[in-house]
């Protein structure tokens, strides 16, 4: 296999990239100064060498434990459970949450053969052990059927540990219009309505 074909094949393995896009990326790199390709290669190599999962929370990090787990300003009594490390970034962007995280590394998906054993659940239970200072676990899996099933599974496991298990609220998007919302979202927004003035 030629170097071009090899790179096209590697690009095409990435999510959302088909063969044509892979070819376009490869030929773009060929037209760039050699240093551009070398920089990309170094960045990809560094990713594999330096980035790993945090041994406490499963978030992706270069230092173990990660910066969030070791930040003394964060509230160690609250743990937010997310499906993927990218969800940590999304919640951090909102700038509202000051607790810790736990990354499951996926969600229950029977059709893809992903069962409870494939998720980073034992480490979560360990964090809630007898000496744990965790008071609340926020289950922030996606509001899909698989995310909901994962949330129910976690709730069943976590309740006996004596912690409060909460779920992210669901409903209408901020800035959206009721007229254009779908019926599932409206139904969920209605069932999760709350008293005005509550925070």
């Amino acid at each position: 296999m030629s170097a071009i074909e090899e790179l096209v094949a590697e690009f095409a393995r990435l999510p959302g990239i088909g063969r044509k896009t892979a070819q376009r990326l490869t030929f773009f790199l060929l037209k760039q100064p050699r240093e551009t390709s070398a920089r990309l290669a170094r960045a990809v190599a560094a990713l594999g060498e330096r980035v790993r999962a945090c041994s406490r929370c499963g978030n992706l990090t270069e230092a173990d434990p990660c910066a969030i787990c070791t930040d003394p300003r964060r509230d160690g009594a609250v743990v937010c459970v997310v499906e993927e490390a990218s969800d940590v970034l999304a919640i951090e962007r909102a700038g509202e949450y000051r607790g810790l995280y736990h990354v499951l590394g996926g969600r229950l998906s029977p059709l893809d053969g992903v069962g409870p054993d494939a998720l980073n659940v034992p480490a979560l239970l360990e964090r809630l052990g007898p000496n744990g200072a965790v008071r609340e676990v926020i289950v922030a899996t996606n509001p899909s059927v698989e995310g909901e099933a994962t949330a129910h599974y976690l709730e069943r496991l976590l309740r006996p540990a004596g912690v409060s298990v909460t779920r992210l609220a669901r409903g209408l998007p901020v800035g959206g219009e009721l007229e254009y919302a779908d019926s599932v979202t409206i139904a969920q927004a209605l069932s999760a309505r709350r008293e005005m003035g509550e925070r």
Partner: peptide
């Protein structure tokens, strides 16, 4: 146009597994 979301199917593992099967 979703007419039935079947939200209860995520409520317990056995039911979720059966619906997936």
């Amino acid at each position: 146009d979703c007419t039935r979301a079947h939200a209860n199917l995520a409520g317990d593992m056995a039911r979720f597994g059966a619906a997936a099967a």
